[in-house]
């Protein structure tokens, strides 16, 4: 009896909010990776994971059950029938920005590797201090 209602609550939560927990886990996974990994390349990849988590977050709250793609098709003009396109558009920009960031990061990383002969943080810092 009580088991069933607990399951309901959990199911309900997972159905409505569950995705956000996953997004949160992804975000913190990214942050965790940035903090603990010693390799600059891995740090950068973790940074990308974190950025993707934020993008997922936007896409999740833009989701609507039974919504149509936002193209006027003559069936209805009721805005509630459509999915809000704005978060997606915003995330296109954000993806472009994160692409740019990644590009700059890779370029810098190449230079670091050339200059210090390593991409391991402790190694690079040791050589930079000399």
């Amino acid at each position: 009896m009580s088991d069933a209602s607990t399951m309901d609550v959990i199911n309900n939560f997972l159905a409505t909010k569950g995705i956000y927990s996953l997004v949160l886990i992804l975000l913190f996974l990214g942050l965790y990776g940035m903090i603990v990994s010693n390799n600059y390349m891995k740090k950068m990849m973790a940074m990308n994971v974190m950025q993707v988590a934020v993008i997922f977050f936007y896409l999740c709250f833009a989701q609507k059950d039974g919504g149509m793609i936002p193209i006027l098709n003559g069936i209805t003009t009721d805005p509630n029938a459509y999915i809000n396109p704005l978060p997606h558009a915003l995330m296109l920009t954000a993806i472009v920005v994160s692409l740019g960031t990644t590009g700059v990061a890779l370029a810098l990383l190449m230079r670091i590797k050339e200059a210090y002969g390593s991409a391991e943080e402790d190694e690079v810092l040791r050589r930079a201090d000399k």
């Binding site: 990061a105 670091i112 200059a115 210090y116 690079v124 930079a128």
Partner: peptide, 12 residues
């Protein structure tokens, strides 16, 4: 070179 390193760390 040190600038590059600082920039990368700042970027992160």
């Amino acid at each position: 070179n040190k600038g590059t390193l600082a920039a990368f760390r700042y970027l992160l």
